[in-house]
Amino acid sequence: MRPFTYARAATEDEAVAACTDGAAYLGGGTNLVDLMRLGVAEPARLVDVAHLGHDRIERRADGGLRIGAAVTNGDLAADRTVRAEFPLLAQAVLAGASGQIRNLATVGGNLLQRTRCAYFQDVTKPCNKREPGSGCPAREGEHRNLAILGHSAGCVATHPSDMAVALAALDAEVRVRGREGTRTIPFGDLHRLPGTAPERDTCLEPGDLITAVEVPPLRMPSRFRKARERASFAFALVSIAAALRTDVPGGTVTDVRIALGGVAHRPWRARRAEERLRGARASGEAFLRAAEAELEAAEPLRDNGYKVPLARNLIVRTLSGLVAP
């Protein structure tokens, strides 16, 4: 690990001012410290943003939540309101990592964690995300757990967060404090597809600090599910966060949200499937047609074609469960 200086910021102003070139914000450190130890991240300066008062979950006037960026995953999943009113978010957080990691990891850091693609983590091998222009060995190499949707010639990485999948389904917004002031980014715009610049995971600019996540009220049944090889403590092969409302039980779909994890460079909001379902009768057949419509765009690689039926089945299974729990 490269030597670095450490600064504990007391205010947002201090933090942003301190985050000059070569610096990185430190939240819980669960991903950053790991990457520094691997030599993937080499900040010369760490600006600790765990003590800015961003560790609270507040109720908004509309019934939604404002979740501070420094709230730990453990505290988020323990929150009574989250558990009762946003079960898909609690479930997503609890499905991720381990109890120990969730106690360190923060909401802001979780959103900004980097891909677990093995080539990205191995500094002795090329990777366009780590070293732009060096190549993507994953495309022809080991990619069983990489993207089937939205990938590019230069990058087939997936975003590893479970929580982000739930936030994508929740139509959340991200509050960002930057060098030019504060702004709000719709959650769907935060993470990018790799395109020709896979080194950029998000739309954030240098110095940008996530201060909070805004979550509007949900008020419909929701669920997060995750398929994985190991029964716990494993990244998703495919995950889904979904919410569904019908006019009457078994009737017409009036609102639906579907987001997939483990399939793309960002949490994948299944807009096409949602469009198909809105106004349709809630049935297994409709869910299947919607899932297939969404996955028409899938371009599986040599060894990850299984993710297409897996995503399809998860959509059908999860939506069916929301209709008839």
Partner: peptide
């Protein structure tokens, strides 16, 4: 990894040994 000649998944997050669950 045929291209590089090593095992790709060299850690306990990618090489899965059973957990308690």
């Amino acid at each position: 990894d045929e291209a590089f000649g090593d095992h790709v998944n060299r850690d306990l997050a990618q090489y899965h040994v059973p957990t308690c669950a």
